[in-house]
């Protein structure tokens, strides 16, 4: 996920990144204006076989492809949790139902990570377009939430398998109030 956000930031435009990176590719050289700081490079003659019009055409293509790519990437992101499900199932199967520190840590991680992401759904999808309203990417968000919920359910199932869920009457026995007695009988001996 961090990788995809990195690539996104490159797509969105490097901005003032030129000062921080020792070596960086600047794809915007030819688009005048935006790469203001590197003006001297644009004055170089074009390499053989390169025409500026071609670059402009490519830029047009890029702009149309950009939208499709965004959607694709957002669906990738949305489907990520669901793709994790088989993996989690396998881990669950391997870790067994004994109560020891590692299975418990795994279960806790499995439950907590999706829960955390559930609270940051909008923030996750914000990166696709800063100007988008929270109602955009609804389908993706729905799938994303669904996937995370599936992971939480898996963790719960695992807890159940390990016997950590208070689902039996015996788990609530200690909280029962003492029974009141109606009659009082005494032994006189």
């Amino acid at each position: 996920m961090s990788q995809s956000s990195h690539s996104m930031s490159r797509m969105g435009g490097p901005g003032g990144g030129g000062g921080r990176w020792k070596w960086s590719l600047d794809f915007n050289t030819g688009r005048g204006g935006r790469g203001g700081g590197s003006g001297s490079a644009s004055e170089l003659s074009s390499p053989p076989g390169y025409s500026v019009s071609n670059a402009q055409q490519a830029a047009e293509v890029y702009r149309t492809a950009d939208k499709g790519l965004k959607v694709k990437r957002s669906w990738d992101l949305a489907l990520g949790p669901i793709k994790q499900v088989p993996m989690n199932l396998f881990i669950m199967y391997m870790s067994g139902n004994t109560i020891s520190i590692f299975p418990i840590m795994m279960v806790i991680m499995m439950a907590i990570r999706p829960l955390k992401t559930l609270f940051t759904v909008n923030a996750t999808f914000k990166n696709f377009d800063a100007n988008d309203s929270p109602t955009s990417h609804l389908g993706q968000k729905f799938v994303f939430v669904l996937g995370n919920l599936a992971n939480v359910a898996l963790a719960m199932y695992k807890c159940h398998g390990m016997g950590l869920l208070p689902t039996h009457a015996s788990d609530w026995l200690a909280f029962a109030d003492p029974i009141e007695r109606v009659e009082w009988a005494y032994v006189g001996m």
């Binding site: 009457a169 015996s170 026995l173």
Partner: peptide, 18 residues
Amino acid sequence: STEEDVHSQGRVMADRSV
């Protein structure tokens, strides 16, 4: 004994039923 408190109302079995 009239002063006796019965804290637990049941016994937990091996299958976690009461």
